[in-house]
Design a protein around this nucleic acid. Structure first.
Length: 415
RNA sequence: CGGGGCGUAGUGUAAUUGGCUAACAUGCUCGCUUUGGGAGCGAGUGAUUCUGGGUUCGAGUCCCAGCGCCCCGACCA
């Protein structure tokens, strides 16, 4: 992509109505734009990062046998009456609205009420189980207080997976499988080292649930991490757990963290109200057993920025950067321009994702400052100096070293 | 929802504490020059000072109400 065609601009100063690191950097670099408290647009760079994260998640969900669907955001009150959650969440984070005919609707903040009857229509035989279905979609929550940039918003993108089983044992097995898939996702995104599995309250669903907590001072939760095995416990239930539930040791360190995912063994809490049952081998009708597994796409994006940044801007992990290579043309000399164009096309041909700073009216200093702010992992500079040596200057965003590379060798660099 | 802070060109700030035509930087437009870490000169552009009331000879500034944004808390299946 030629940078001269990107409509968003970088800002020297962050708007004063953003305090959080993620919002300040993402806004300055032109990834997001705030419409209202907790409501953001994703601009070309921001959307690319989102889609990168989504695709990593998609890949791992498919890997564990889950099928992707898309459920509606707009949902009638009737399905929420079945589980009693319309009443239960009256005046809470559930958005409620009416249509012209005065009929009640909500904007989906979770999708158990949609997925359960949906599966019930198709999954009729015991032999159809287990079944795993997910979507990546907008969620709406009427937060009393939106905060921390894109970490707690009123509209956000979430991956939600639902699993349906004929036995607790089968649910347990899949639950563990999802945990592993989640850590593969975190590793690909680049936050596995700072992300911990954390025992937490299960709310009204189950006694406990598991959260995935990424350590950052911008986080809202306090977790206690076992010094021995790395299992964490959320502060909200710490008094019930003096020992690590995993290894039994009692030494913990305390950290602030942001919850980027949460998984629950729902059991029959939703299948019972919808009367979703299967006929067991012995001919008896049994309620279907269910699990749900959330992962905040846009929240992870914010968490990554909180974790990976320096004084000059964002430092994107390779797999989710908006582009792999930031090719910068310094000077508008014909030879330089031609060389840069050629390198740009060559890299594209090799399947590289390149942002080409071809802007004529920008001086080198501004281009470098923008490159640091935007945070693309690999920077390549083409200038008079480098052209003379038939080479390109190479610098990685997370390193200080600057070196030259021969033009014909460039294909080996970057992902 | 309780507490605190803040609303002035696109962005960041200023305005003698109630007093002249709301200033500076940056951005944007045009011209010339310049080209390795946010260049220089010149000429332009851009504001219903959040909204509505009130006090006053006079309000960006004081008072009241509302709206909006940020932060702390509560809340967060």
């Amino acid at each position: 992509m030629k940078q001269s065609l990107i409509f968003s601009k970088t800002l020297k100063q962050a708007p004063k109505d953003e305090q959080s690191v993620n919002a300040r950097l993402l806004t300055r670099a032109g990834f997001i734009d705030k419409l209202s408290a907790g409501i953001y647009s994703f601009l070309p760079f921001g959307l690319r990062v989102c889609q990168k994260i989504e695709n990593i998640v998609r890949q791992e969900m498919n890997e564990i046998g889950a099928q992707e669907i898309l459920m509606p955001v707009l949902q009638p009150k009737s399905i929420w009456d079945v589980t009693g959650r319309w009443q239960k969440f009256a005046g809470k984070e559930m958005f409620k609205l009416k249509n012209q005919a005065n009929k009640d609707y909500t904007l989906g903040w979770t999708h158990e009420e949609v997925i359960t009857p949906l599966m019930q229509k198709f999954v009729l035989s015991r032999k159809d189980f287990p079944v795993f279905v997910y979507q990546i979609q907008d969620k709406f929550r009427d937060e009393i207080r939106a905060k921390s940039g894109i970490l707690r918003t009123r509209e956000f993108i979430m991956k939600d997976l639902y699993s349906f089983h004929t036995s607790e044992n089968d649910l347990d097995k899949y639950y563990e499988k999802v945990k592993k898939a989640y850590f593969r996702i975190f590793k690909k995104i680049g936050i596995d080292k700072q992300t911990y599995l954390c025992l937490a309250s299960g709310g009204s669903f189950s006694k406990y649930s598991h959260e995935f907590q990424t350590i950052t001072s911008a986080g809202e939760d306090v977790i206690y991490i076992c010094e021995n095995c790395g299992m964490a416990i959320n502060k909200e239930i710490k008094t019930e757990h003096l020992k690590c539930p995993e290894c039994g040791k009692t030494k913990f360190r305390q950290e602030k963290a942001i919850e980027i995912g949460n998984i629950f063994k729902l059991g029959t809490n939703y299948t019972k109200p919808f009367d979703f049952k299967f006929i067991d081998k012995d001919g008896t009708r049994q309620p279907v057993i269910m699990g749900c597994y959330g992962l905040g796409i846009t929240r992870m994006m914010g968490a990554v920025v909180e974790v990976f940044n320096d004084a000059n801007g964002i430092v994107w992990p390779e797999n989710i950067a908006p582009y792999q290579i930031h090719l910068i043309q310094v000077g508008d000399d014909l030879k330089v321009k031609e060389t840069a164009e050629k390198i740009y096309k060559g890299l594209l041909k090799q399947g590289k994702e390149v942002l080409y700073d071809d802007r004529k009216d920008k001086r080198p200093g501004e281009k470098f400052a923008d490159a640091d702010l935007i945070g693309i992992p690999l920077r390549m500079v083409v200038s008079k100096k480098t052209v003379e040596k038939n080479s390109v200057e190479i610098k990685y965003r997370n390193k200080n070293k600057v070196e030259l590379a021969q033009i014909k060798e460039l294909g080996k660099l970057g992902r």
